[in-house]
Simulated scan of single mutants.
Amino acid sequence: MFVNGLKWMFLIIGTTIGAGYASGREIWQFFGHESGLAIVLFTFLFCASCHVVLSISYTHQTDDYAAVLAELLGPRLSKGYDIIIIFYLFTTTGVMVAGGGAALEYFHVPFLAGVLFMCALLLIVAVKGVKGLTSVNSVLIPVLIISLGITLFSFFWLHANVADIDWKNQHNWPSAFTFTSLNLLPLVAVLSAAGKQIRHRGEIWIASIGSGVILGGVSFLYNESLLVAAEDIMLYEIPLFALLKSYPDYMTIFMALLLWTAIFTTAASGLFGLSSRLYSVVRMPMWALAFVLLCLMLPLTQFGFAQLIAFLYPLYGFLNLYLLIVVLIHPFYLKKRL
């Protein structure tokens, strides 16, 4: 039970920590000044949301998110959110593929070669299905979390101070809801496909609480570190590099590889969630479906990474506030219905 719980925990973290999160762009977009309380609220909201989605998926033994949406929103409204999720997964996975190619340019790999390399690895994971996805996350995510956590903690230890945080003025607390609702979309898409793989409810508790606490802690360290380097962030496409400017070159190289890992895990989760949903509509091999989707995503590689995050992420966060509310009240509604 414990091992399987950790497996789902890594899947959740791998789905959430993408290029936007790992680069710091997503953290800076939603949090920033006066956000300590917002990050604490996000931790609780995230734990609760993961638990509800996994519980529904386990109860109904789902293999795609259509049944979970129908349970939460009803048959009519779920169709609208189905379209939103498909569009979200398609656009963000396309951005991740582009980000993978751009990240490899740091190592003088041509952009197109980097994109094709990313696509080839994604196809391998798609062939393996949910077992391949969880296997990849079980290896990569611990390395990603530990490395990012050490980097942020060392920067925070040298440049920031918890005592300097003004806990009385926390006016940015509403961002906790939009940030959680943004990350709810990929969670619903990916975790809904895991219903038949969960063997015990204890796995759900381990995955939900573990992922929420880890992401909350990393988000707090990241945000406070970015506040210290706030004047330099505007000079960087990737805010993380603003924190690394005083570090040795080998550290920047290592974190660039780490960033590519975050991009890959998110792209793999997004492609898996999208493929599993469309498989029920288009009956073709998963690898062939994934191949077609990747080909269709290639035009998105022409758009800028920071610009897409600045436009799409707040929009998706706002659109999914209703879904977040429904997820949070679902346990109470279920008890009343029973």
Rank of each mutant, 00 (worst) to 15 (best):
L123S: 09
A98G: 15
T92E: 01
V125R: 01
I124A: 15
G114E: 02
V95R: 14
V127R: 15
G129R: 06
L123A: 10
K131A: 09
V95M: 12
S135L: 10
T91P: 03
A113Q: 12
V130N: 11
G99S: 14
G99D: 01
G132M: 07
L112D: 06
L112A: 11
T134Y: 09
L104T: 11
F107R: 05
L112C: 00
Y106Q: 11
A113G: 03
V109Y: 09
E105K: 14
F107C: 07
V127H: 14
V127E: 10
L123Y: 06
E105T: 15
E105S: 10
K131M: 06
P110S: 08
G129D: 05
F111D: 00
M96L: 02
M96C: 06
P110K: 05
Y106R: 09
I124W: 12
K128D: 01
T92D: 00
G132L: 04
L104R: 04
A120L: 14
Y106D: 05
F117M: 11
G99T: 01
L104H: 03
T91Y: 08
L116S: 11
L122P: 07
C119E: 08
L133Q: 07
M96S: 02
A120W: 12
A120D: 08
A103G: 07
L116C: 10
I124Y: 14
L104M: 15
T93M: 08
